[in-house]
Simulated assay, not measured.
Amino acid sequence: MSTKTKVPKQPLSEQLSVGIPDAGMFEDIPKIRRVAGDSAGPRMKGKVVIVTGANSLQGIGRASAHQYAHNGAKAVFICDYSDNHLETHKRELNSLYPDVDIHPRQFDASNEAAVKAVCEEAIQKYGRLDVYFANAGIATGAVFTDIDSAEFMTMMRVNVLSVFLGAKYAAKAMLLTSPSKPHPSGSIIGTASVAGLRSNAGSTPYSASKAAVVSLMQTISYQLAGTGIRANAICPGVIETGMTSLMYEAARARGTEKKIGQLNPLKRGAVADEVARVALFLGSEESSYVNGQAWAVCGGLSAGHPFVPGRLS
């Protein structure tokens, strides 16, 4: 049996430090108390964001960077190991959102020194870090008996270690306070998968790595208890991204594209922006009481035991 982990004393969140303010009265009834700001305005106003895995043309990282910028972020760091599209993404974002600082950064998200450096850069430039979206990842379709230990550990390094390091250094940055940010706060988001929630949605090493991301976010949320820093996982289902492009291209060539996603209740696959909307929610104060959760964005696939209608007789 493991001993209880001793958590070091950390600064408290605004809600624990000063409480949730009274909103006053309307006639003889109390007004609604709120933690988040106005939900009708830009949801990321003034926030500094780091997104890894942002190079892919069809990826969740790129789509999320657009959502953060569109919703008023002060700065967005778009990061990836591959950087052949990052400068183009920067030009596109600058053309659409000229008031948002866009910083392309090329590095391996599982390299500790590089992750530490980008978090420290955010603090040096802006005095704050509000969102770290650990989205870098790889996949394989190989059967586990055909995968050697080196390939397995590569999957763990890219998909799990990158999230751990991102959370580690993002949390340290988010704990810092300043005149513009008098209390610690922030949102750490890790890309997991429905394959991390249910079996038979991905290969063995991929599924194991994504289950680990879910566990990381759950345990980290408790390690950061009381700080106002939240940690959540996003669990996409079938999404058209660079990672699934071969499947989509093959289906289109066969004329069977409409069969993609047929096992989920929505009967379709998704585009990256549909996942990015959840990343936006989790990165904003709209999700101020959402913590330690695994958010399935899968069209309902993870809600049941999929079967093909008419095939059970």
Rank of each mutant, 00 (worst) to 15 (best):
M1D: 13
K4N: 13
K6W: 13
V7D: 05
K9C: 08
Q10L: 15
P11H: 10
L12T: 12
S13E: 07
Q15D: 10
L16K: 02
S17K: 08
V18S: 12
G19F: 03
P21S: 09
A23D: 08
M25W: 15
D28K: 13
A36H: 14
A40D: 12
G41Q: 08
M44V: 01
K45T: 13
A54R: 00
N55W: 01
N55H: 02
L57H: 13
L57C: 09
Q58R: 13
G59I: 09
R62D: 02
S64I: 00
A65W: 01
A69I: 01
H70C: 10
H70G: 15
N71L: 06
K74L: 11
C79E: 02
Y81A: 11
Y81D: 06
E87S: 09
T88A: 14
K90L: 00
R91H: 12
E92Y: 04
E92A: 06
L93V: 00
L93D: 00
N94G: 01
S95Y: 04
Y97I: 03
V100T: 12
H103W: 07
H103K: 10
H103R: 10
R105Q: 04
A113M: 11
K116R: 15
A117R: 06
V118Y: 00
C119V: 03
E120I: 03
E120W: 02
A122G: 03
R128K: 12
L129M: 07
D130I: 06
V131H: 05
Y132C: 10
A134K: 04
A136L: 08
A136Y: 04
G137M: 06
T140C: 08
G141A: 09
A142S: 14
T145C: 10
T145Q: 11
F152M: 15
M156N: 15
V158S: 08
V158W: 07
V158M: 11
V158T: 14
S162T: 12
V163F: 09
F164Y: 15
A167I: 15
K168T: 14
A170T: 07
M174N: 09
L175T: 12
K181S: 07
K181M: 07
G186C: 11
I188V: 13
I189E: 04
G190V: 08
A192Q: 02
V194N: 02
V194Q: 01
A195L: 03
N200W: 12
P205Q: 09
A211Y: 01
A212E: 08
A212Q: 08
S215V: 10
S215E: 12
L216W: 05
M217T: 11
I220L: 14
Y222E: 14
Y222S: 13
Q223A: 15
L224N: 05
L224M: 13
A225D: 09
G226L: 03
T227L: 11
T227G: 12
R230S: 03
R230A: 03
A231H: 05
A233C: 07
I234V: 11
G237I: 02
T244K: 06
S245T: 10
Y248K: 06
Y248A: 07
R252F: 07
R254L: 13
K258Q: 12
G261R: 00
Q262N: 07
P265R: 00
R268K: 12
G269L: 03
A270P: 03
V275A: 01
A276G: 03
S287P: 01
S288L: 01
Q293I: 05
W295S: 01
A296R: 00
C298M: 01
G299Q: 01
G304F: 05
P306R: 02
F307R: 07
P309F: 03
S313V: 13
